[in-house]
């Protein structure tokens, strides 16, 4: 079963890269998403934070699924870390986690 996604590249490295993208990348992506979304939502900060966090868990989940679903580990890394870092940059633009 595992063969389907690790046949093209060295197996353990492939899985490790996808897991890094899923775990660290997914967490960075969803955490940044929560902060940025909170800043953009036109509602009370408390509600905005709550809604953004509720959605962030979904974003994290989708990121993890994506990391293992795409055809290569490279796609997984790029597809998650690029938006994650972009959103992380926006965190400073919207004024940090407060």
């Amino acid at each position: 079963m595992a063969g389907a996604i690790i046949s093209d590249v060295p197996g353990k490295l492939n899985v490790a890269a996808r897991t890094l993208a899923a775990g660290a990348g997914g967490y960075l992506l969803s955490g940044s998403f929560a902060v940025v979304t909170k800043a953009l939502l036109p509602m009370e900060p408390r509600d905005a934070g709550l809604l953004a966090t509720m959605l962030a868990f979904i974003v994290f989940t989708v990121a993890v699924l994506y990391a293992y679903a795409v055809s290569s580990a490279r796609k997984a890394m790029v597809g998650i870390f690029v938006p994650a870092l972009a959103l992380f940059g926006l965190v400073f633009l919207v004024g940090g986690g407060s």
Binding site: S32, A34, T53
Partner: peptide, 15 residues
């Protein structure tokens, strides 16, 4: 369960 833990595991936007 995740939401109940949000202030521990995903605290960045939580007031």
């Amino acid at each position: 369960g995740l939401l109940l833990f949000m202030s521990t595991i995903m605290p960045f936007a939580v007031e």
